[in-house]
Computed example of a mutant assay.
Amino acid sequence: MILRQLFRALLAVLIAAFLFLFLLLPIYTVVAEGLNPSLIKEVFSNFIYLEGLANSFRIAAVTTFMVFLIALPMAFLYDAYEFPGKSLAHLAAMVPMILPPFVGALGFQQILGHYGVINTLLVSCGFARVDFLGGNGRFWSICFIEALHLYPILYLNLVSSLGNIDPSLREAARNLGAGVWRRFFRISLPLLKSGILAGGSIVLIWSFTELGTPLMFGYSRVTPVQILNGLT
């Protein structure tokens, strides 16, 4: 009995030490270093860092908006209609979560890059190459690829929120003559606020901190890439 108690106490100490060394201590170190007043002053007085922050916020905002445009219609169709292969379509909607976004960036470059498939076809037809990914093209490509990767997060939250709505509310609205879209905007959408907020917050933070996709496109004026360059 005493040995068992000693073993449990030792195990608890080891777990606590592990969590402290590999979870709490790194978090404390990063936060303490990040809240250094001189470092904060340097960040906000450096034009390059400010530009990186602005670009990261732009990518996060545009990506979140694109995710909303993709996920909301999909969730609405899944909840409102019955069709063959519905369960399979629901599973297929989760596929983008399997691969990291930078894999999509590689594929995008193979298609729209300077020596990609489309430019190769243009040259073979006698046309000049088009720099699809130059200038603002890189920004929109990054947002689009991140949106394709992250929309399942918001989609799952919306499907869950739609499933929790009392069907009698929409049935009563239908009996009163409200059409599909009016029922959606007057009943469903206001009740989706919690799902939109939860999923949208995750997407916003994820896209703001995404490193792989901007790195693959050589878009260095974003905060995650600047942090990586500072560490290396």
Rank of each mutant, 00 (worst) to 15 (best):
L189E: 15
F22C: 06
F108Y: 02
P26K: 09
F184R: 10
S201W: 01
I153G: 09
H114D: 03
L133M: 13
F7R: 11
A92R: 04
I202L: 15
T64W: 06
L169G: 13
G212I: 08
R8Q: 09
F47T: 11
V30E: 02
P37C: 01
L25E: 07
S141D: 09
I98W: 08
F7S: 09
S124T: 06
F217K: 09
F57W: 03
A105W: 12
F185K: 03
I40M: 13
G212A: 04
R186E: 12
A128Q: 14
E51V: 00
G85D: 08
L3Y: 01
F57C: 00
A128K: 14
L77F: 07
L11I: 10
A12F: 14
G218T: 11
H149L: 15
P190W: 12
G230W: 10
V43R: 02
E33R: 14
F57E: 04
L215M: 10
F47A: 02
P167H: 05
L158M: 11
F217P: 06
L162C: 01
S160E: 14
L211I: 07
L154C: 11
Y219T: 03
W140E: 04
L21W: 08
V130Y: 08
G199Y: 14
I118N: 05
L204C: 14
G218F: 05
A128I: 13
G200K: 03
L204W: 15
I2E: 15
F22R: 12
F185L: 07
T232I: 08
G34W: 10
Q226T: 06
S194Q: 14
P101C: 03
V62P: 02
I187F: 04
I27M: 02
R8D: 08
L6C: 07
G200E: 00
W140I: 04
I205K: 01
P214M: 03
V222Q: 06
L10G: 07
Y115A: 05
S87Q: 13
E82R: 00
Q5R: 13
L72M: 12
F20E: 09
L35N: 15
L23T: 15
M1C: 04
L122Y: 06
P101I: 05
Y155D: 00
F102A: 06
A16W: 14
S201G: 05
Y115S: 12
L162D: 07
V30K: 11
V117Q: 12
A60S: 15
S161N: 01
L6F: 10
R4M: 08
L192S: 07
L23I: 13
G104S: 07
A17D: 09
F68D: 03
A128Y: 03
H90T: 00
E82N: 00
F47V: 01
F44A: 00
L35M: 14
I153R: 10
L133D: 12
W140Y: 04
